[in-house]
Design a protein around this nucleic acid. Structure first.
Lengths: 214, 214, 214, 214
DNA sequence: CTCTAACCGAGACGGTACGTCCTGTCTTGTG
DNA sequence: CACAAGACAGGACGTACCGTCTCGGTTAGAG
């Protein structure tokens, strides 16, 4: 027999197939998200997901390598579904010409999202797993976090062109001044979260802590 | 209203005793910290800690309620020991009169600490557990994080008195402008960490993103 | 009252399955019997059986509810295997026409068996457990003891037909006159066991303690 | 090195002392007996006895080597107390001249005793432990069983003198013909126990199974 | 329009760790 | 110095999941 049968083979998770059951995939996503919300991430088990989804354990292990992977895909899928439902539009930060107001508005919307357990529970779970699993974290950042942050980058660049932000400022760093504090308060319970708080962050970030020169 | 005498205190872990074995406690701390560094938090088990410490499992369960609690106390103790060894002094941020330089210095030292696996591994583990366990997180924040942050508060207040920070700025929020971004990059691998990066954070925070008025 | 169709049967052990591993079952039997012989019943643990059999603990708990149950089935199986090997025949007490001789012969063989640790150890263990666990004891009696005793019943009935035993005697009680004393000496160490002793029992039982009328 | 300090020393259980607390000893007996009746022998633990007796565990370990030893002494003590209360008399089998009647009466009384859980539970427990622990069993037999059996020996000897039992019969063996069957039915649940049953045993034993010669 | 390989639900399997219970030893303070 | 109290190292308990492995039964898509 000549050359080896099939070339690519890739040791990646998927045995690749068109015969994959769409119904099972959806049931697994739903079960995983529901369990994380209902019983919490540590008590969410692969066996539990399989049972709730009415699926064999092997069907999970065939397509994913860990419960974190399952949850990640389920959460990504959730986001896509939500975007599809919302009509796809708000894939950008509004630009009314008033940078401060635009940023405050987006941050307020972010707070609202953090309050919804359907978002909060899986997002925290993935973040928690990521703290201790760098590979997963990088996937999380690349697929979920960074795309959102790039919206801020875009808006800040526009602001630079408009002269509202100093041209020497690196937007990718700049956005962290107001995004990271909110993220930390949210994830680590380091302080209360409110519209007033995020408004203040934007003001401090834009105008600085030091007094303006006379 | 008269002052209440003494709070009933925590109901939980300690059966209270002077007969507690100091030797075992230390062995447990050492084992827990070593295991987290060597095999990672998820593979650190109570059974493993007990075995490594040469201790019965019950001795752990008698005094703590979870591996996270053990690690928390071990990590706190580690900090105290380190402080004791260091001679207790550097419990404040230096004040050379140059606020920017002082902050940059402390942040650089923080980066160095984040690089040390003996600090990084348990700190991440506790943060990860906290993401998903609010009570633990609040303890973590109260005992470990907030005290450190208060050092920044103190330094910023001094700066306000010196006229280097606007008087209407809330220092507790202000410090987040440069501390939270670093924390997020560290914990979530959202970007590279370097002295240059933290220096930039301080500059942006102090002077703001917006151009200075003429 | 009409006859009920079929009893609901035992509710307990088996999740019922054809997928059960025959290899594991045998390994568990072997391990249980070996451990009881080697280290004694109280020091035989389910954990030990599992380890020795190269089996997960759950595989034992899935099919049995206690180490006594395991040992019971292992011991029953041992008997069946032995019977299979022996060619099935000696499922009856010999009938040479001489009742006394036949009984003495069987009792001597019983003594030999009691001397073999492979029989003695598990049999004692089951008896001991049964003393304190009526349900188990009844199972032990029904499956192991009573079938053996019925062989005596059969032989005594034949003897009654031959006129060697009074017709008004209840064979089920009669057999106890010589079987129970041996059992008690064996199990409780209440006296020495010898061929002479069992011969004497048979003689006393057949002819009585009282002097024969002239 | 001079001569060893104290001579006798005996590795036996008791450190020997007059300072021993009588109150504790009684409380331990009471607790042990009560627990065996209430929760059964296997669930009776030394810790449980100590707690119920209001006694430190060490006080038990100081004077006994196992829960079986404790129970043995407690049970012996129970017998002595009962005898003391009953006025000490019935330390012999009655002799009315009618051997059969006397034996039947004693066996009926024995049945009554076996029915009382305060006797049944500890007696079974000790028997069970003895099956698997020869040393304990020998102690049990020597201190509890054999003394009772010797009463039968005495009565049978009297009967031999009176011509009611053949002179060549060994009374120690003879008594087993009716005592052991009852014991086995009691301990192993091999059959129902009734006055009629024991009466039958006595008749069979005295007159034999074989037909009387013509 | 079969045939057959992959996926599917189900769940037994060898394992690991859990958190609890008890053992027998030890230590601490009281009477 | 016996005692109550109870911490300690150790080890078994019975349970819950892990990730792997059959076992039929569907269910395509290649022949």
């Amino acid at each position: 027999m000549a050359a080896q049968k099939s070339a690519p083979k890739s040791e990646a998770p998927a045995p690749s197939s068109t015969r994959r059951s769409e119904k099972s995939r959806r049931a697994i996503y739903d079960a995983a998200l529901a369990l994380v919300v209902e019983v919490g991430y540590p008590r969410t088990t692969i066996e539990g997901i399989a049972a709730r989804a009415g699926v064999g354990k092997q069907t999970i292990y065939r397509w994913w390598s860990s419960k974190a992977e399952v949850l990640m895909e389920a959460f990504l899928d959730l986001g896509e579904e939500a975007a599809k439902a919302a009509g796809d539009e708000p894939y950008a930060i509004p630009d009314t010409g008033d940078l401060a107001a635009d940023l405050k508005g987006v941050l307020r919307a972010t707070i609202d999202q953090m309050t919804d357990p359907r978002f909060d529970a899986p997002a925290r779970a993935l973040a928690a797993e990521g703290l201790v699993n760098e590979a997963l974290s990088r996937e999380y950042v690349a697929k979920l976090l960074e795309p959102s942050l790039q919206l801020y980058v875009a808006r800040l660049r526009t602001a630079q062109e408009a002269g509202d932000v100093r041209p020497d400022v690196d937007p990718r760093i700049a956005l962290e001044l107001f995004v990271s504090p909110l993220a930390q308060r949210w994830l680590q319970y380091t302080g209360p979260i409110s519209y007033e708080y995020t408004d203040t962050l934007v003001d401090y970030a834009l105008h600085g802590l030091a007094p303006r020169a006379r």
